[in-house]
Design a protein around this nucleic acid. Sequence first.
RNA 1: GCGCCCGUAGCUCAAGGGAUAGAGCAACGGAUUUCUAAUCCGUUGGUUGCAGGUUCGAAUCCUGCCGGGCGUGCCA
Length: 655
Amino acid sequence: MNILQELQARFRAALVGLSDASDADLDLIRPAQDPKFGDYQANLAMPLGKRLGRPPRDVAAEILGRLDAADLCHPPEVAGPGFINLRLKDDYFIPHLQAAVGDQRLGVAPVEKPRTFVIDYSAPNVAKPMHVGHIRSTVIGDALCRTLRFLGHRVISDNHIGDWGTQFGMILYGYKHFLDAAAYKNNPVAELARLYRLVSLVMEYYGILDNLPVLEKEIQKQQKILEKLKLEDQNNKKIIEKIKEQDDKVKELRSTWVFDNATRIWLENGSTTPDISKLIPEHKEIRSDVLAETAKLHAGDPENRKLWQEFLPACEDEINRIYGRLGIRFDHTLGESFYEDRLAGVVEELVNKGIARESDGALCIFFPGEKVPMLIRKQDGAFLYATTDLATIRYRMEQFHPDAILYVVDHRQSMHFKHLFEAARLWGYGDVELQHVSFGTVLGEDNRPFKTRSGDTVGLESLLDEAVLRAGEIVSANDDAKPDGPELPPERRREIAEIVGIGALKYADLSQNRTSDYVFSYDKMLAMNGNTATYMQYAYARVRSIFAKGNVDAAELRRSGAEIVLPTPAERALALEILRFPEALDRAAADYRPHQLTAYLFDLANRYSTFFENCPVLRAETDALRRSRLLLCDLTARTIGKGLELLGIKVVEKM
RNA sequence: GCGCCCGUAGCUCAAGGGAUAGAGCAACGGAUUUCUAAUCCGUUGGUUGCAGGUUCGAAUCCUGCCGGGCGUGCCA
């Protein structure tokens, strides 16, 4: 039961015949901003009055004259310039609450018109360990899958893994030159990760070696420009500004040089772990050789192909282990390699249709009014990720016939997706909704991209371990402080810590508007106050604890036919909040923003806390009131549990 | 240079063109023989970067400026 939808339906009927009214006006029916305005408010009389050329209050009065909602709410009031304030009758919504008691879906009706979604998220490069950068895509994508699926849509999740790129060339090179056979036999994943790191360090060394002279030249050039500027009119404000800008530019170049040079020395004198200083001289051509290994793989070289087939399962096992820990699964894992044999055909067709054309030796798709094209084939004949993405769209359209394809990818790729979607439309895929569900960067508490102290990106697994470790400390401290003494054995504490730690990590990400960067903080995500998973899990556990303490069987209670009554404001507020669950899910799904759901859960948990403070449950004055309150507790817990489940977060019975 | 995004309380963030811009943290003051205080209640704190404009109504839409991030032809 969606109260908002019901109100909108009633208003729609009341607006019939009122010229110029449309469904868009119904969007202006909302939950009240302030309790003193009632439960819901309709703000549609103002724009309507404007369009009809009549005083809004008159329009509001006319609408109310036609409105048939006496069963839903008390007589509405017109306030201010024409706000219509609506106060629901308890008799109206209590039966819906009562219905939710016996409903697996908590009164959330499936959508009338299910759509088919393909959701593309996580997409790590499987040749290297997952890191902090993968968490947002993975967590947000998973939450969207779960939420849309629960709402009744058909959802196909597809992990478009990187299993065909240069990273595999690096591992191939490493395997052929640096392999520790015993280590590989013992733990292939760890050895491949070691090889990857080794090769990338040596490559970085030669990259820097090449880059330093270029930097020096550029510094000289920019320095000259700076000197010239200094000779100009020093009273001109614009010149002074330019000098400052130019000075910053030079400084930045110099600091890059200093940093790169320090890295060079660091790599040369053997202070790295592992020490690569002895390897450097023996692998002067590593960068082109790695590319050659990649090219050989793509060309079908039997040895490289065989090795790739050997590596891939190990790499996939590794990421699957982490997905297992995160509770994430995919319907499909169709990586880049899956599309390899389709790319040439895609390019040929785009050229034949006149969508792509040659430019500087590459094949490009140009867009009206845009300077930069999208490249679909390089000068050397190799394909690019744009090519794969186009082939992927075709495959998904043919295989799944989706109404929408969502790409949960960070915002830095917005131009790529703009181009990709435009190209897809030119190619004939104009009907499908193509959405870049973008998100910001994960920052450290210094407001810079989250890195370790030595500057490496943080591995995803160590992130999980740290969150779980800290959660464990909190769980133990709390259990030790319980009034009747600790009740959790060590292994149970560990299980709870895993759920609390990983839940905190996910929730911290999901509760933020995905479009902005977000600042990563263990302390904040594990805080017990505020909008955190821990607070929500705690609210859930407290409810369960009441049932345990009162020796109440929740399932039996639900079947008992006990009635809900709402004698106090705290109970009424909690009851209404429970019924708003469907509205929150709709909002979260509408713009693919899970933080709408977390915000709702936080509101719900807050109302519950107020209720919990004010309304004794087990010690309620009468047995009827006790049973009513137990039902409210149960509904709250189930709603929190379901909401968290849709976010991919688990709950515990005790914590 | 061009393009995209962002700028809200000391900090981290909310706010569907709607009434007095809200939370958490921090600070301060209260509540506990706990139905789990990992809590609750309250106080303080704002020129929503600046200047215009559109509108009955702007944090939100438009224009310009200031500040920041990201991207910008053969990586993904």
